[in-house]
Simulated scan of single mutants.
Amino acid sequence: MKILFFGTPEFAKTSLEAIYHSNHEIVGVVTVADKASGRGQKINESPVKIFAVQNNLSVFQPEKLRNPEFLEEMRKLEADVFVVVAFRMMPKILFEMPRLGTFNLHASLLPDYRGAAPINYAVINGETKTGATTFFINEKIDEGNILLQEEIEILPNENAGQLHDRLMVMGAKLVVKTLDGLAENSLKEKPQPTVEHPKNAFKIFKEDTRINWNLDSETIHNFIRGMSPYPCAFTTLKIGDEEKSLKIFSGSFEISDHQKSPGTLEIDKNTFKIFTKDGYYLPQELQLEGKKRMNVKDFLNGFREFENISIVGV
């Protein structure tokens, strides 16, 4: 079949690469416009664009998906199906264009975890399994008819980044399997199951990443795993008179009886404990504002007066 691919980040690039090495023909690749960022305002190209250019695929970078000239270019490609992976919302005039429709790869077992951050929330909520779903796009977010689903186990101490990488590979295979099924007319689309209260995966904002030390230890541990390595959970340290953000990438926890208030620190050159409702958390990898990411031993070596360190905004 002729495929028009829509995507931007590394997660999408892996699916594009899998299609490229399949029996299907990629007639075009649509991705985000190049952006200038950083101190030198260096132009950054998306991973999808980089792969497409390296493999001589036609690249389109529209500012607006409803642009009449862009839409006409897409029609002329005469793609059989559009494949969407980690891209923005598409207008109906675009996703209804190909004869077989437009399908999306979503990193959850729909209908659970519709939204922008399904991998993060599956880990945050302590799920033991998740997966990937291919489904036809309609006008509602992540609510179209399911084509294929595949399940994957979430490992006990796996973080969101590690799960992302495994789902990225599994999802790419599922995309090709979906294309093969559509080509052979062997897939039967089915409506998503009706769930009274599906679990959501809303976009994560900065303040959503603050750690609440009043919660139980396991909930805090899952929250930190689910935010790691990006956008990363944080707390605020007061060091003397100065307040600084402290990102925590990983750690472990212990359940214990104690009389300390949640958020209390027990800290010296060998110990960094943060007390919770039912025990304490032991950070292992962290990053103080203005410093590089480091292990807890190197972090503690940077201090002398531990009694002047506390957590604020518990």
Rank of each mutant, 00 (worst) to 15 (best):
L4M: 14
S22A: 13
H24L: 07
G28K: 08
V32Q: 14
G38Y: 04
G38K: 02
G40I: 00
I43A: 00
S46T: 15
S46M: 06
K49S: 14
V53D: 14
Q54Y: 02
Q54S: 15
N56T: 12
V59K: 14
P62S: 04
E63C: 00
K64E: 15
N67Q: 12
N67R: 08
V85H: 09
M90Y: 01
P98G: 05
R99M: 01
G101D: 11
T102E: 07
T102M: 09
L105T: 04
S108D: 02
R114N: 15
N120W: 10
Y121V: 11
V123M: 10
T128G: 15
G131E: 00
F135L: 11
I154V: 03
N157D: 12
G171T: 08
L174R: 07
A183R: 07
N185I: 01
N185E: 12
K188R: 15
P191I: 12
P193W: 01
P198T: 11
K199A: 10
K199V: 04
F205N: 09
K206Y: 13
E207M: 14
T209C: 15
I211C: 06
I211N: 07
W213A: 12
N214F: 11
I220D: 00
H221L: 02
N222F: 05
F223V: 00
R225D: 09
S228A: 13
P231S: 05
T235Y: 09
T235A: 03
K238H: 10
I239Q: 00
E243C: 08
D257F: 11
D257E: 13
H258A: 04
K260L: 15
S261H: 07
T264E: 11
T264K: 10
K269V: 14
T271D: 02
E285K: 12
L286Y: 04
N295Q: 02
V296Q: 04
V296W: 01
E305S: 03
N308D: 15
G313F: 11
